[in-house]
Design a protein around this nucleic acid. Structure first.
Length: 399
DNA sequence: TCTGGGGTCCTAGGACCC
DNA sequence: TCTGGGGTCCTAGGACCC
């Protein structure tokens, strides 16, 4: 008999109604009122507005009809980016292992911090107060043994709350939850599960795994079956790096001339490649993203022989893909274009470390590492066991 | 739920290789 | 030449997340 001695040491921390909360913090007139961020399409709403049935992704006009007393504001992305940066600073000083899921949410592994920082519950409580006091933002924290249960716990505790699910109470917490409310179950999977007669996570747990994999495919079927039976061993991973850069724009109902489509494409490519150069990343696979009049989507992709972040190379590939797709676009009408670059290569950080160390000496090592993090992204650089002489003398394998 | 912008992961078939 | 078993890479699409 395998007896688990694992404790609830994973935190899922998630700022409530992030964009809307930042707006309320920055403008006192918005506090205590229903706020809708985004005028064309709703990007975020306060809980006051949600009470009227307004939610993210909704058409702005419809949202105003549902909630006429709400104040609608344009999004201020610079403010959100800054708030996110400060938020992650607090996360990272809470514990060294932090896995960001979005601008406003992260898993934090607090295993082994008991003697330094207290129990996971105490750490979570302190974290909530710090975010509230230093950033003026409401945050909810779920604490559990696994990522999914921590995520579901914070969902259950929202807004401005906290929930610790002890390992002995996991079944009791998870099994009554409706399948469609599980993290990772969307509209399509929920429908398939309903067709099997499964309504709750408990039903999912009792269903033979083979029945699930037949209907949902191997990965999803296996994953959900394991989760429902409380088996999950995915660690919190702090050094994840993005796999693609993309940009897209909806065109609305108007028909664009080929010249207009081309200039839109060029602007998207310029945006994406500039971001890539700023981050010091190169990619090989150029993906053209299309959406048609009926809102169905399609992609066309091409893989280049070498990774690049050059505007002209990516634009050349993007134009070829667009030309090939021209007959389909002609037939079905175009309502969205997007470009993304995937197949990213890892930049040669070795040479960067060498430069920084020459300039600063070991005394400024942390500052040098921070500089590298700024350039390559926080996840690209770690101060690990490889900080030895041999690393610095190595030639970069790629640039 | 009548639809914005940014991502992640999985699947399946075909080409190609030894 | 009609034939096994193992693998990689590329393309396109689907589902899901915030």
């Amino acid at each position: 008999v395998f007896v688990s001695t694992e404790q609830a040491t994973i935190l899922h921390a998630d700022v409530d109604a992030f964009f809307a909360s930042v707006e309320q913090r920055n403008d006192p007139r918005l506090r205590g009122r229903a706020v809708i961020v985004g005028k064309g399409v709703v990007m975020a709403t306060t809980y006051e507005a949600r009470a009227c049935g307004v939610h993210g992704g909704m058409n702005g006009a419809r949202a105003r009809r549902l909630c006429p007393q709400a104040i609608a504001v344009d999004p201020d992305f610079d403010a959100y980016i800054e708030a996110s940066r400060e938020l992650f600073e607090i996360f990272r000083r809470t514990a060294p292992i932090v896995e960001g899921l979005s601008m406003e949410e992260a898993f934090i592994d607090v295993r082994g911090l008991e003697h330094i920082s207290g129990t996971p519950g105490e750490i979570a409580t302190r974290l909530r107060h710090e975010v509230r006091d230093e950033l003026g933002l409401p945050i909810t924290v779920g604490v559990a043994r696994t990522k999914t249960i921590a995520k579901m716990a914070s969902r259950a505790a929202k807004p401005d709350g906290m929930l610790v699910v002890h390992p002995t109470r996991e079944r009791e917490f998870l099994h009554p939850i409706a399948v469609e409310d599980m993290w990772g179950v969307g509209a399509s999977t929920a429908e398939k599960l309903h067709r099997l007669g499964l309504r709750t996570v408990g039903d999912l747990a009792d269903c033979p795994e083979a029945s699930l994999t037949t209907v949902l495919g191997n990965a999803v079927g296996h994953h959900l079956h394991a989760l429902a039976n409380l088996r999950e061993h995915r660690p919190v991973r702090s050094h994840r790096r993005r796999g693609s850069f993309g940009s897209q724009t909806a065109l609305g109902r108007r028909r664009l001339s080929p010249a207009e489509v081309d200039s839109t494409l060029a602007a998207l490519v310029e945006r994406v490649t500039r971001r890539m150069r700023t981050a010091g990343r190169c990619g090989r696979t150029v993906v053209l993203r299309l959406r048609f009049d009926d809102y169905k989507r399609a992609t066309r992709s091409h893989t280049l022989p070498r990774a690049t972040a050059s505007t002209s190379s990516v634009l050349l590939a993007a134009r070829k893909l667009l030309a090939e797709a021209e007959p389909v676009i002609e037939r079905r009408g175009l309502t969205l274009v997007g470009i993304s670059v995937a197949g990213l290569e890892h930049p040669g950080v070795g040479v960067q470390l060498e430069l920084e160390l020459d300039r600063t000496g070991t005394h400024g090592l942390d500052e040098a590492l921070d500089e590298l993090r700024d350039r390559y992204g926080a996840n690209a650089v770690s101060r690990g066991t490889k900080l030895s002489r041999t690393v610095f003398s190595e030639k970069p394998k790629r640039t």
